[in-house]
Amino acid sequence: MEIAQKVYEALKADTLGIAQIVGDLDEVEGAISSGKYTTKHIEIEWMPKRDRLRSQLADAKEATLSKIRKIVDDYKQEQEAALVLDPAALTDDYKLLVSGIELTERDLCAILDRSGNNLTMQQMTHRYAKQHNVQLPKERAFMGDSEAAESVGFANGLYDIASRYTSRYMVRTDGLKMLDKFFLVEG
């Protein structure tokens, strides 16, 4: 699942999860401002409830941001790990890459096909292509350092969006609609 989808789903689930607290807080604040109760009754009965509910909301927001931070950090680690070569992942195709035989685009594409999810072999194949000026099809592109930096920046941007959402919109009655706007979800 893509990181944006993971962040969106986590925010949506947590927004739905705090709906009861938000409703209870609205009810308590309505009672406080209704004028039906004496100041003493409000101080004894309603203020402690309001403070408890506000504390629960603050804790829920903090837990949401911690969850989003973990999603983002895990994603960033995955992106960085993809660029680290693993000698244990070298296959027999590596022998072709270092043999001195001039490999063609077709040869390299065949190696990539055999590599599957082996990021080390994919990276080695792309390095060979770059060093020997072999043009691979665009759909065979491999994420390099600049793309990794870009994806990490994107992940950090998602955390910033989540932070703004939780601080301003998560507890609003239209919070889910705002979440959809933040993530450009139509529906």
Rank of each mutant, 00 (worst) to 15 (best):
G144S: 03
Y165K: 12
E45S: 10
Q122S: 12
E45F: 12
H126M: 01
G35Q: 08
S55Q: 12
R52L: 06
S163N: 15
F154Q: 03
V152S: 02
D160P: 00
I21K: 01
E43L: 06
L25C: 07
Y75D: 00
D59N: 15
T120G: 07
L176R: 10
L65G: 02
D145W: 01
A63M: 11
R168I: 15
A10E: 13
V134G: 00
D145P: 11
V22E: 03
K76Q: 06
I32M: 10
T38I: 04
L136H: 03
L112T: 07
Q77P: 10
R106W: 11
L97P: 01
L119E: 09
A162N: 11
Q122H: 06
E147F: 00
R114W: 13
A58K: 15
T39S: 12
Y8G: 11
D73T: 12
E80F: 00
T125S: 03
Q131M: 05
R164V: 10
D160Y: 09
E62D: 12
L90V: 07
H132E: 00
A81C: 02
N156Y: 05
D74E: 08
A13P: 08
M170D: 04
G157R: 00
G100H: 00
L53W: 03
A89Q: 13
A10S: 13
I18A: 02
S55Y: 03
Q77Y: 02
T39F: 06
L65F: 09
V84K: 06
F183C: 07
L97M: 09
D160C: 05
M47S: 01
L136M: 03
L16T: 09
L83E: 07
Q77N: 09
L97R: 06
D174M: 06
I111N: 14
I32W: 07
L158W: 07
T15K: 13
E62A: 13
R164H: 13
Y128F: 08
R127C: 00
I18T: 14
H41R: 11
E78S: 07
L103K: 04
L25A: 04
A81H: 01
Q131N: 06
E139H: 04
